[in-house]
Design a binder for these strands. Structure first.
Length: 439
RNA sequence: GGACAGUUGGCAGAGUGGUUGAAUGCACCGGUCUUGAAAACCGGCAUGGGUGCAAGCCCAUCCAGGGUUCGAAUCCCUGACUGUCCGCCA
């Protein structure tokens, strides 16, 4: 959401910034609506003022036992015009809100201009991609050869874009999540949260998924709840409708391990093999709430927290700053962390860390007050994956694969979470049915 | 799923149709007093919006949305949430 006052004061700044995302100029139509609405409000308030004072007078006259029918009739007549103006105010306000709430956040100065992911700017690299003479396997080949990754059964139950894992891989997924949570809570100062996974529509509005991205969400028929597409949604909304003191435990840092549900409506045909893009996946999320002046530094810190996960897993990655055309709706600036996937011979996104500035805070009314000040200000919100568990599993499979025996070495940091297991070996007689029996 | 009760400012808690945006207490901020502090006393203390150079003036908001009325925190309807009891259940 955008600050209407700021738009009034400097419309060019907004139009120019939005143009970087490929949007047409918006402010003139916004300001026209705004002007019209204020004119309506002014007239309405004048009438209301008149009504209020006459009504007070009636009260006093009645107390004195005087006749008030004349004056009552007079007030009664004002009602039509008032109703008319109220209706007009509401209509104008609605379209103004609808318009404003569908426009993406302003981009940070540093964000490079560009059309799509090809224009993203690499800022860091870690590790050396492993390259071998053999053609490396993709994660689903490794997983299926292990006999622990079953897309057929998942499809039978749920259709495409679902997977069912067994045995060592199921355990490794759990191990990854535990490892990440322990890292963020133990070393990075995040508070672990176990949030609701079903939320109401206003919560998704608060973080920016609604109204514009309704078709990307799953929802429940009976109750109208939405399944969270990321824990960013419940975690950030912890601050919704609050006014806190400036020194009240800021920054706040929350982490949660949750499933995420996405309809992937717009990605038909994309990443259809394997478990890279699923309707359901696990993710460890990081969310920070800060003062405005602290969000830039917190953004770097958060990105570092996410990178640490990959460093400890010893998976090569690079970090890119998204260009204007690739930066998401609610973000001012986003770093993607891309893990090296030997099977694809490329880096793929495994984490996305965004500074949303006051954009979400404004939508959900997350505010604070500075000491001695009367005015409230909006907090800044940040979110990042720390990291996507399913994709981390993919990265481990492809980077730790042992072609000699078809096994997958368990990264050191995960071994304590897997009972000391050092390597996942293929199950014997690798047909899915047998595997399930032996699992 | 059934029955009842509730939702008021940062918190607690008055208030059932007329100067109530809202008593009172606590918390918080400023002042007096004090060597300093505490106590006591005095004063201040909601949010959003309109208008104005400004001081200010005005409008809206007592869970949300409708309605009744000249006038609604207060009456009516719908919904959300919380609590209690019953039923069911991981």
């Amino acid at each position: 959401m955008h600050d209407l006052r700021a738009i009034r004061e400097n419309p060019e700044r907004f139009d120019q910034n939005w143009a970087r995302r490929g949007l047409e100029a918006q402010t003139s139509s916004i300001l026209k609506l705004d002007e019209e609405r204020r004119a309506v409000q002014t007239e309405l308030q004048e009438i209301q003022q008149e009504r209020n004072s006459l009504s007070k007078e009636i009260g006093l006259m009645k107390r004195d036992g005087k006749d008030t029918s004349d004056i009552e009739a007079k007030v009664g007549k004002m009602k039509d015009r008032m109703a008319e103006l109220e209706e007009r105010d509401r209509t104008l306000g609605d379209s103004l809100n609808q318009h404003l709430s569908s426009i993406p956040n302003l981009l940070d100065e540093e964000v490079p201009n560009g059309a799509d992911e090809n224009d993203n700017k690499e800022v860091r690299k870690f590790g050396e991609p492993k390259r071998s003479n053999d053609k490396p396997l993709e994660h689903y080949e490794i997983g299926e050869n292990l006999g622990m990754m079953d897309f057929e059964t998942a499809a039978k139950l749920s259709g495409s874009r679902f997977v069912m894992m067994h045995s060592g891989l199921a355990r490794m997924e759990r191990a990854l999540a535990q490892f990440m949570l322990d890292l963020h809570t133990g070393e990075h100062g995040y508070t672990e949260v176990s949030p609701p996974l079903l939320v109401r529509d206003h919560v998704l509005y608060g973080t920016g998924q609604l109204p514009k991205f309704a078709e990307d969400q799953f929802s429940t028929k009976e109750t109208g709840h939405f399944l969270i597409p990321t824990a960013e949604v419940p975690l950030t909304n912890i601050m919704a409708d609050m006014i806190i003191e400036e020194d009240d435990a800021l920054p706040r840092r929350y982490t949660a391990f949750t499933p995420c549900f996405r309809s992937e409506a717009g990605s038909a045909g994309k990443d259809t093999r394997g478990m890279l893009r699923q309707h359901q996946f696990y993710k460890v999320e990081l969310v920070s709430i800060t003062l405005p002046e602290d969000s830039a530094a917190e953004h770097d810190r958060m990105t570092d927290c996410a990178e640490t996960v990959l460093k400890k897993l010893d998976i090569p990655f690079r970090t890119v700053m998204l260009c204007s055309g690739d930066t998401g709706f609610g973000a001012q600036k986003t770093y993607d962390i891309e893990a090296w996937l030997p099977g694809q011979d490329t880096y793929r996104e495994i984490s996305s860390c965004s500074n949303c500035g006051d954009f979400q805070a404004r939508r959900m009314k997350a505010r604070f007050k500075r000491k001695g000040e009367k005015k409230t200000e909006f907090l800044h919100t940040l979110n990042g994956s720390g990291v996507a568990v399913g994709r981390a599993l993919i990265a481990v499979l492809e980077n730790y694969y042992a072609p000699a025996d078809g096994g997958v070495v368990v990264p050191d940091v995960l071994q304590p979470y897997m009972g000391g297991l050092k390597k996942i070996m293929p199950l014997q007689g690798a047909t899915t049915e047998q595997l399930k029996a032996s699992a």
